[in-house]
Design a protein around this nucleic acid. Structure first.
Length: 345
DNA sequence: CCGTGAATAT
DNA sequence: AATATTCACG
């Protein structure tokens, strides 16, 4: 018996939001019309489709999923930053029928980790409405007991709708050891307790990249500076450091499984998904000083053909032509008075 | 502090 | 396997 014979009008709300979000994103990618014509087209079609659905007919829509391991706040639909929407080049076969499970589904290939790929887009995006000044606040309770993904962010400025945050009024520092093997020291001070893995959401990563840009590249940026620019509450220095490290690694070696060979009939190998794949010529030569750093020292992930303008706002007043000599002008005015965040290192 | 590499956890 | 955290050096 089909019980959803009557559909609530409310159900359309998320769809409308979705459409709205789509339209907004379409505006963003319009800048890349030359490079991502299909993408634009796709989004447009998606919008059309959604609108049609809104007009009547079936109310079946697809919603993106967040990267973080099954968080999806129990609250309403949080459409925020979802580019993980798959972009199939063919508008027809977007049917995601995955019902049959015969033996092994070896379709896990293709996409490994977007890391730079997906992010690359933002990396050097002009980002006109670049009002990234709003500091994020993540209620990272060092380790909320039980919740391994204490990931919740909210604008500290402006309205703060007291989301589902759960101020542990009763259990301040409940160090819940999810490690089954613990078997002791559960209530001890969570000093030596491993922090829950911070999930670097796209938002967070965006800020990270943004900071990197301002600082002139991943190799001249220093964790502390990055953290300060990001203005993310709850983000520790080490976390940035770690992330930065990984970022650098990916920059150096983005494609390990590059065992492309023994196939005389696959000449064009530089055609990846987004088409943001520039052959390895020394584009760096064209780059003007700092511009080169911003996009991969190796030139693997190169900016799109149309070279983007230099740094929009070089917040750092430091000549970044040279390597930090480890005893130079780091310009480190460690004044704790500088609106230091509420951190208790 | 910062950069790394290793050990470890998820 | 990839990603994150911690620790230890320099």
């Amino acid at each position: 018996m089909i019980r959803n014979t009557h559909l609530f009008p409310d159900k359309m709300q998320p769809c409308q939001d979705y459409v709205h979000a789509l339209e907004e994103e379409r505006r963003k990618i319009q800048v890349f019309q030359r490079e991502l014509p299909l993408c634009l087209e796709l989004v447009t079609q998606a919008i059309e489709a959604c609108k049609q659905q809104l007009s009547g007919t079936t109310t079946e829509y697809f919603h993106g999923q967040s990267e973080c391991s099954g968080d999806t706040s129990s609250e309403g639909p949080v459409f925020e930053e979802f580019f993980p929407i798959k972009t199939s080049s063919s508008p027809d076969e977007d049917e995601e029928e995955q019902s049959h499970k015969d033996g092994k589904s070896n379709d896990k290939s293709s996409k490994k980790s977007d890391w730079l790929r997906s992010v690359q887009l933002w990396n050097q995006t002009p980002d006109p409405p670049i009002k990234e000044d709003s500091p994020i606040k993540v209620s990272v309770t060092t380790n909320s007991g039980g919740a391994f993904h204490p990931f919740k962010k909210e604008k500290s400025v402006g309205a703060k709708p007291a989301t589902t945050a759960s101020p542990p009024s009763s259990t301040p520092a409940a160090a819940a050891s999810t490690t089954a093997g613990g078997s002791k020291k559960d209530e001890k001070e969570g000093q030596s307790q491993r922090k829950a893995r911070r999930c670097w959401s796209p938002e967070l990563h965006r800020r990270f990249l943004h900071a990197l840009q301002q600082l002139g590249g991943s190799h001249v940026a220093t964790p502390k500076q990055i953290r300060e620019i990001m203005k993310v509450d709850g983000l520790s220095n080490d976390e940035v450091k770690s992330h930065l490290q990984k970022y650098r690694l990916h920059e150096r070696r983005p494609t390990p499984p590059v065992h492309n060979n023994s196939n005389p009939q696959a000449p064009p190998q530089f055609v990846v998904v987004g088409g943001i794949w520039v052959p390895p010529p020394d584009y760096a030569a064209v780059a003007t000083g700092e511009g080169s750093r911003a996009a991969g020292a190796n030139g693997i992930y190169a900016p799109i053909a149309s070279a983007p303008p230099p740094l929009p706002q070089p917040a750092a007043s430091r000549t970044k032509g040279q390597r930090p000599s480890h005893s130079d002008d780091r310009t480190r005015s460690n004044s704790p008075a500088t609106s230091s965040s509420t951190r208790s290192t």
